[in-house]
Design a protein around this nucleic acid. Structure first.
Lengths: 88, 88, 88, 88
DNA sequence: GATGCGCTTTAAATGC
DNA sequence: GCATTTAAAGCGCATC
């Protein structure tokens, strides 16, 4: 009287506990990370900029450049009322 | 002489403006929502609990029916140290 | 027979319903926004870049420039092993 | 000869590296977590339900005690069309 | 002014 | 490959 997997209670419990364990470790590390940011803030660094630095360094330079190029292109296109008609 | 989409400046600008328009409407509604909360606070209601009420009412119609059966099965399996052994 | 505000059930219900109503409108607008992005994607635009365009246009130019300056400063500082030693 | 924090390049670099290090550890743990889920899937468990189990177990110890009373009061008030008419 | 919480938004994973 | 769903990050507010 059970479904396809209803019986492996021990296995399921083990799995759940292992997941909870990893998640706890992740939580601890996230705490540590947060404290590094606080320390940086205390040292006078701009957290918003700091986050962007970390984010940018994660991307490989190629993508970063391509992104920057496209961004400039888009920004210009949005800015100008009508690139072609403006001609001169 | 341009990338795949470099030319459609007008189209891009239209898109950006439409996005900005929707976002503005969303911002206005968020303001309205905030004022309702303020009004509730003025009437003596606990905002924290009020938020929880709204959140709970959002969930109820959803899950509580779908995989409720399987969920209960799993929860029981995880809770009990050893379903079989407990037996008698 | 009730707490400080236990009685105003009608008022509370009205408040909750108003909140739910605004939230529904917000949800609809968010849907609309998402569809604009999908349309942009279909037209060949890079969504990631598009999002950044929208985000940048939200900040006033002053902050944007200051952020950009600091960012460059930080990136350089992180990149160079020892700025001072670089001397000349 | 610089802004408020322009000089501490070494300090900034140390901070960034420490952040990147923690993030790498977090990434590894996330990988491990993902593999546990894959293993569970291989054993025939429903991942969607499994995730819900983990989530529910996270919430239980928390709220269910704190403002449970007020919450119940509010929920009842919202549910019932007219609390006073409760009569009997 | 700093801290913590909640919401919004963004990126990733999974299934179709 | 697309489209939904889910977890994570960033941001802003409200509080103390």
């Amino acid at each position: 009287m059970s479904g396809p997997e209803g019986i492996q209670g021990d296995q399921l419990r083990t799995i759940v506990e292992r997941i909870e364990h990893v998640e706890e470790e992740i939580r601890d590390l996230s705490e540590a990370k947060k404290e590094i940011f606080l320390e940086a803030k205390g040292a006078g660094f701009d957290l918003k900029v700091l986050r962007e630095v970390v984010r940018l360094r994660k991307q490989d330079p190629e993508d970063r450049d391509e992104h920057a190029t496209l961004l400039e292109l888009y920004m210009d296109a949005v800015r100008a009322p009508s690139p072609k008609a403006k001609a001169a």
